[in-house]
Nucleic acid binder design. Structure first.
Length: 804
DNA sequence: TTTTACACGGTTTTT
DNA sequence: CCGTGTAAAA
């Protein structure tokens, strides 16, 4: 069995059926470091899961020897589901999860070594921000010079770079102050027993780095490490992987670590803005001395007109690892290009087109609208709404992030940890109890002076404010007693009642939705208990140990005695320490903010940003707002890396489509209350003509000497004009999409400038006008200066000379 | 303490 | 245009 070759396996194992040659190679790789370049729609997830199943089935590794890391909970869940469909294995016991989820698991198991309380709570971004705000107020830090948001960003970045306050090189006073705040923040978190997302990663990394026994244990244990979406890893995550794989240039390598299989696609790297480093892919190849790179280029998703367009577009990027998608499917339909006079009419056209598609029996959920920025969804939503077409928007507020849910969670957290000051302050006066800012200031001063938590400082306060806060604390203490041996569901119910949250919203005329959500929280608690099997078996780490024969029916199970599943927790004596259901639930809430889709219509048009479309696919895709300044976004135009990321974004968008792809752009667009004139995106020029079909007459290319890019109707320039057309909703009268654009006499702009015109600026030199905005004194122009990038200039201030 | 007014800023996002 | 957040008034 063990000596069986891959070829024989193919014949015998149904696992390997229907894999193409490259996929088969990837799945059956020997135990060595490897990089898989998996193009869009090339069956990446399938390869990853089949690889794990294959390793397990052939007894090359036990379930405990696998470490599989993803970025999103969704991806982790998908992997688990597919894996358990292939093999009778207890996937919940396996180390398959997100970076943060796995770090959490790791830190819980070794909380003592990590210097954390067993029940540490996790701060999400909101919590982190309010913690920083509180800290700044406490220490009289100028919120103007050091905005809390930026501080959060600064702290997060430091952690991603693996830098503690002492490690940050601060040359200027501003940075020194920031580092000081960073240190204060760290102290505060430590004191309150909370960690933010960055801390989960960094603390895990440091523990591995500094504790030889633990490091070597995990290096021995994880024989196969699989990383999904490798192009999205940041510096710290890569360092973490090196550490756990026993592969590093920092003297901590011992060669005994497992094999790393990195799966990624440099062309789909779209998260540089949040710290992702595509460079990790090349670093990985170098530092791990990777011998095998496998390219998965066979695309099973799209027809070739779509694929060729994507290939042509992305070929304009430099510094690629090099990859070209191909398909066995035919050319398919051409990519349709549409130019609208206004964003509103663009939406109108799109809705008309959708109606036709729906008439042709395309399911609504197979139609997706992609846009670069969220602001664009508004017009589309209203148009769809008016047409009574069901739709759903991705990326709204998520369940555990809603205000009322966060309030409820804060109460629960205080029950668990009375020293959680963030949660304390959040709900001490909500619902209102007559505890004002003044009283809280006194309390905070007292706590600061004594160095204790707000909860512990309460007894020192006197007078009416003191009594009120003491009352609040007493109430919670009673509630803590009451809930001590209750089920999670009962705890939540009791809390909702005793805190007065439910009553508060019952008295609120508009509180119905909130009550509904709070009810949903009770349900969530109940189903969480069911899912995790609390009350029957020991939770958390113990669950891991309770699955020695996970592969019960597998022929390989005989080879699994002395399984790493058992070894891990036992060796460190952590199995006895388990999280209470409430603690586990709170962790779950922080780590999985829940569904971020709007209420699920059964069959609805899908609306989302290009970013959130990654990993999804649809029969028909509309990519809207393909305009200069929007896509590529103006903020990304200044440097080449920015532009290349925009191009990858467009590549991701295009490769979402299976059968039919529409690209549309509009001459005018309402943005920030002003009508903007946009040129069509440069990306159009990078697509192969033979794959395209113009639904509107093609714009004239911009003459080399500057000049004028296309025409726009002045009639759409005013708000009222667009507004009127909008409210009539007279779809029949919008015959614009087949009719050629009216050639409107070009009115001389009062500023004397036109788009595409070359101008001269004393400082920036010669440039081209990209966008004109506003009028009179507010008039601004976006100008691209080849030497200095793209600038926004106020025309009333900047001295510009037109160049012929 | 709650309500109302004005200023400000506005890519992309997961954990 | 439109939501957020802080400052002033009821």
């Amino acid at each position: 069995m063990l000596s069986m070759s891959a070829a024989n396996d193919t014949a015998l194992s149904p696992l390997l059926h229907n894999l193409n040659p490259e996929q088969l190679v990837a799945v059956t790789l020997p135990a060595e470091h490897a990089l898989i370049l998996a193009g869009a729609g090339s069956g990446k997830t399938r390869v990853l899961t089949t690889r794990i199943a294959w390793l397990l089935q052939n007894g090359y590794v036990s379930p405990g020897g696998i470490l599989a890391v993803t970025f999103t909970n969704k991806a982790a869940k998908e992997m688990k589901t597919r894996l358990s469909a292939m093999l009778p294995v207890n996937v919940n016991g396996m180390w398959i999860g997100t970076f943060h989820g796995l770090c959490n698991r790791f830190l819980r198991a070794h909380y003592k070594n990590a210097g954390l309380p067993q029940a540490f709570q996790i701060l999400d971004t909101q919590d982190q921000l309010s913690a920083i705000k509180r800290l700044c107020k406490q220490h009289n830090i100028d919120g103007e010079r050091f905005p809390p948001k930026q501080m959060g960003w600064f702290i997060g970045n430091c952690k991603e770079e693996g830098l503690r306050p002492k490690d940050v090189v601060a040359s200027d006073p501003d940075t020194r102050k920031k580092v000081e705040i960073y240190q204060l923040y760290e102290d505060q978190c430590q004191r309150e027993g909370v960690v933010d997302f960055g801390e989960l990663m960094l603390r895990s990394y440091e523990l591995l780095r500094d504790n030889t026994a633990i490091r070597e244990h995990y290096q021995r244990r994880f024989r196969h490490i699989l990383i999904d979406e490798f192009q999205d890893t940041n510096k710290l995550q890569y360092a973490w992987i090196k550490m756990i794989a026993g592969q590093g240039s920092d003297g901590l390598l011992n060669g005994g670590g497992g094999s790393v299989l990195a799966v990624g696609d440099d062309d789909q790297s779209i998260y540089a803005f949040r710290g992702a480093r595509v460079g990790n892919m090349t670093d990985f190849v170098r530092e791990f001395a990777v011998q095998r790179q496998i390219k998965l280029e066979e695309n099973y998703r799209s027809y070739s007109n779509i694929l060729d367009s994507a290939n042509a577009l992305i070929s304009h990027n430099s510094r690629r690892l090099g990859k070209n998608l191909r398909t066995a499917q035919g050319a398919g339909e051409p990519v349709r290009v549409y130019e609208a006079p206004s964003d509103f009419l663009e939406a109108q056209w799109m809705v008309d087109e959708m109606k036709q598609l729906i008439r042709d029996d395309v399911e609504r959920k197979e139609i997706a609208v992609l846009y670069r920025s969220n602001a664009q969804s508004r017009v589309i939503e209203t148009t769809l709404f008016n047409a009574a077409i069901p739709y759903r928007v991705y990326g709204g507020q998520r369940f555990f992030e809603r205000k009322e849910i966060k309030d409820a969670l804060a109460y629960l957290r205080i029950l668990e940890n009375p020293n959680d000051d963030t949660s304390f302050l959040r709900v001490v006066n909500f619902p209102a109890r007559g505890i004002g800012a003044r009283s809280l200031e006194l309390l905070q001063d007292e706590a600061k002076a004594t160095g204790c938590s707000l909860h512990d400082a309460v007894s020192t306060l006197t007078g009416r404010p003191g009594a009120l806060i003491a009352g609040f604390v007493a109430k919670l203490d009673v509630l803590r007693e009451q809930t001590a041996d209750k089920t999670l569901k009962d705890i939540v119910t009791l809390m909702l009642d005793q805190s007065g949250l439910l009553e508060h919203y019952r008295n609120d005329r508009e509180g119905e939705d909130r009550i509904e959500n709070l009810d949903e929280l009770v349900n969530a608690a109940e189903s969480f208990v069911m899912q995790e099997g609390f009350g029957r078996e020991a939770p958390g780490m113990a669950q891991l140990a309770s699955a020695p024969n996970a592969l019960t029916q597998s022929p390989a199970s005989q080879g699994l005695s002395g399984d790493a599943l058992n070894a891990a927790p036992d060796e460190f004596g952590d199995t006895g320490e388990t999280l209470s259901p409430l603690q586990a639930f709170l962790t779950h809430a922080a780590l999985e903010a829940g569904d971020n889709m709007a209420a699920a219509g059964q069959d609805a048009i899908q609306l989302m940003t290009v970013h959130s479309s990654k990993g999804l696919e649809f029969d028909c895709v509309f990519i809207t707002g393909m305009e200069e300044g929007l896509f590529p976004h103006e903020n990304s135009l200044s440097d080449r890396d920015g532009l290349e990321e925009e191009r990858r974004l467009a590549y991701v968008a295009i490769t979402r489509a299976r059968k039919r792809l529409y690209l549309s752009h509009s001459q005018t667009r309402m943005l920030h209350g002003q009508t903007r004139f946009n040129l069509k995106s440069r990306f159009f020029d990078e697509l192969p003509e033979e794959c395209l079909k113009y639904l509107t007459p093609k714009q004239q290319p911009m003459p080399a000497g500057g000049g004028f890019g296309g025409s726009w109707g002045n009639g759409y320039a005013t708000n009222s004009g667009a507004g009127r057309a909008y409210s009539t909703g007279a779809t029949a009268s919008f015959g614009t999409y087949s009719a050629p654009q009216k050639e409107v006499a070009r009115k001389e702009d009062p500023t004397g400038l036109q788009k595409g015109q070359k101008v001269f600026h004393a400082k920036f030199g010669e440039g081209t006008v990209l966008t004109l905005e506003g009028a009179g004194d507010d008039a601004r122009a976006q100008i691209n200066f080849p030497r200095h990038g793209t600038k926004w200039l106020a025309l009333s201030v900047a001295k510009l000379t037109p160049v012929p």
